[in-house]
Write a protein that binds this DNA or RNA. Structure first.
Lengths: 247, 247
DNA sequence: CGCCCCCTTGAGCCGGGTCAATTTGGGTGG
DNA sequence: CCACCCAAATTGACCCGGCTCAAGGGGGCG
């Protein structure tokens, strides 16, 4: 687990804590509410419809994804979750739905559980917390909108864009995207075969290393290929505009 | 405008007001904050980056869509907005972004403006309001996730699904979807030409009328073609689970 | 040291895109 | 009431990116 921490540390630029990096300041009041911590291993389901109505989950360490498993065996990955992210979504509240939405660990992870009542009381005490949750949901929507845009792009820029997004979330200095080609395929909506051909091209362009891992050699070029503008991930200006203060 | 009201009345099942149908009960505290009302005509931009940081907009009547105009002239429609919807999104907060996100009226509409300060104060007074906004953003994310799923489907079920979604939002008894084929194309991500061929097929299947408008004759069949399960639009159970009360 | 994922590559097909006309119906001014 | 206009709807021809099917490789972990 130590290496795991190292791998996911600094998951957000300007982070302060090695584990909970993403917007730690805003989320701190949430972290205070974490009573239970659980370790989960790769592949395990962290959140699904059986759990959500009693507790809210926060990813403390590791990497996870929200996904749907379709009856035909295919998997749709909506978003990847990094430390600090709330793993809650109204979309997973429908146990009878054919498409089963869940959050799944992609590496060894550590999650924190928050009691629903505690959260409600916290919001009563600190109304700004409600705004923080609102904002977090808006960021999620923002990411989804961006994915809708890239969904229409050709395969190469589409994959490149996802890699840029993940590099940004992993934080400055990160070079290896800890995903495999299957996960990338399920996120961008390409077949594994075609995704593989895209990786081949990216390697020939000198953007990725020849290694089996996804290792970015030329981030600048990657951003150009993806027309990447990371501002949709950035919430700091919202923070300042709304002058949110917790306490 | 009177006919306009009639056309969009009852925009949500179990509505109580002819104009503000969608979740009127939850949003009432928001509506109290509306100081200014404005009429906008079809095609006009309601919200873009020049406006959002001072005011929050609510759609009181009519039909609107959130969209991005790409430099190549194409338009991506993310969601359609019905009366009662908040027309705010962090995604439109980036004036320098190449892709310009905006909310655009698709018919004559009436919007209400809420001062940012008034909203902040209201949240201070009634913390549950923050949760309502959170929930609204989660519903938006839910709609976007669903659109990501259908984005991988073949053209016919994809279009059918959008029509089902809009029928649901328009409310029981609605039969005409007040969109044209261009708007549908931009929402589902198909070319106008191919969208037109899908409509041709839907007519031959007896699902749509021969009329130029989008008039649904066989909603049951349409739902089957789309594998439609409207629960992702339904927030009522969230309401009850969280026992939200405004005042 | 062997097994199971995962990665890789080739061949052939097809849904949907693009380009280019043409039609249609509603709105408008004379 | 009619001729005209224009956005939207329609249709045909052709092309291609990405999918499917199928068959190897390779390396990390038990």
């Amino acid at each position: 687990m130590q290496q795991q921490y190292a791998a996911t540390a600094g998951a957000w630029p300007a982070s302060r804590s090695p584990r909970i990096a993403h917007n730690e300041i805003d989320r701190n009041p949430l972290l205070d509410l974490v009573k239970i911590r659980e370790r989960v291993s790769r592949g395990e389901t962290i959140v699904d419809s059986t759990r959500t109505d009693k507790q809210i989950t926060v990813l403390l360490d590791g990497l996870a994804c929200m996904s749907t498993l379709h009856k035909d065996g295919s998997r749709q990955i909506y978003t990847f979750h990094h430390p600090g992210d709330l793993l809650v979504s109204q979309g997973m509240r429908y146990p009878n739905s054919i498409d089963h939405i869940q959050v799944q660990a992609l590496s060894k992870s550590l999650v924190g559980l928050i009691e629903r009542n505690d959260l409600e009381q916290a919001i009563q005490r600190r109304p700004a917390l409600g705004q923080v949750l609102w904002r977090a949901a808006m960021v999620e929507a923002s990411i989804l909108r961006q994915r809708l845009i890239t969904a229409r792009w050709p395969a190469l820029p589409r994959v490149a864009h996802l890699l840029c997004e993940q590099l940004t979330r992993l934080g400055v200095g990160s070079v290896v995207v800890p995903l495999n080609q299957i996960e990338v395929s399920d996120a961008v909506g390409l077949s594994v075969v075609h995704t593989n051909r895209v990786f081949k091209d990216l390697r020939q362009l000198g953007v990725l290393s020849q290694s089996r891992r996804i290792e970015v050699l030329d981030e600048k070029r990657l951003r150009e290929l993806a027309s990447f503008d990371g501002r949709y991930l950035d919430v700091s200006d919202i923070l300042s505009r709304w002058e949110l203060r917790i306490e």
